[in-house]
Design a protein around this nucleic acid. Sequence first.
DNA 1: TCATATGTTGCGGG
DNA 2: GCCCGCAACATATG
Length: 272
Amino acid sequence: MPELPEVETYRRFLEEVMLHQSIAALEVKDAHVLATDEDTLRRALVGHTVTGTSRLGKNCFLLLSSGQVLVLHFGMTGDVGAYRDEPDAPRFTRVAFHLGSGLRVAFVDPRKFGRIRLAEGVAQYQQAKKLGPDALDVTAGQLQHKLAKRKTFLKPLLLDQSITAGLGNWIVDEVLFQARIHPERLAHTLTTAEFNDLHDAIQLVLRTAIGHEATYRDFPASFLIHAREWDDSATPGTDQHQFCPRHATTKIEKTYVGGRATYTCPRCQPAG
DNA sequence: TCATATGTTGCGGG
DNA sequence: GCCCGCAACATATG
């Protein structure tokens, strides 16, 4: 789940439950998700309070009164939750932050691709990980500047977190569909108008997704997301979801681009 | 059993 | 250095 809209939704949740709260204990149920050793984490967290939250791309930050920053990356299956007593801990809780109030905040991650680590600051982390500007902040001009000389497929470039941070596999498909651009267009062939379309589509898709708290089934019918196999919003048995939202008789195609499952409408997005 | 999976990293080879 | 394909990571689900 966790692309930018999910992570932003998690951030808002964490801000609600953790802001100005003290951390009484750190409970590590599976150290696999720790990218900073447990003792170092504990020293930075326990006895300190959360003074703010932030987000860059798919990374969520908890600003700490110790001056450091806790970085949460959710991998492919990460989630957050809150509970009060151990029997209510969500399944696959890997780490729990026990707050002074008694509430416990869970870092949940079945596949354990997520990571929790300490950083000196957001800017330091951004530089260390070579993260580009957040996808909500990136301008059409910045995109054009970074992509105009690249002679490779557009989609993998949009997934590259150093170009812009936060776009994941389904969002890129949705963005390209909304912008009516084929994922295998070579980046350097895009016109200025197309870079503007791309930027507009990024804004539309991200703002829509955040507005619906990343709940796919609530997205407008004009969204391609409903054609993805794992979406359950289609009426069972109708296969209606396999068709383009704009062309009721045109089937959405599934291919692989850069090794990633890719959905396109052949009419809306003619090949470059 | 096999295929698939929303992310990231690192390897080998061109 | 750039770029691609591919595997690995660890696990759940259909």
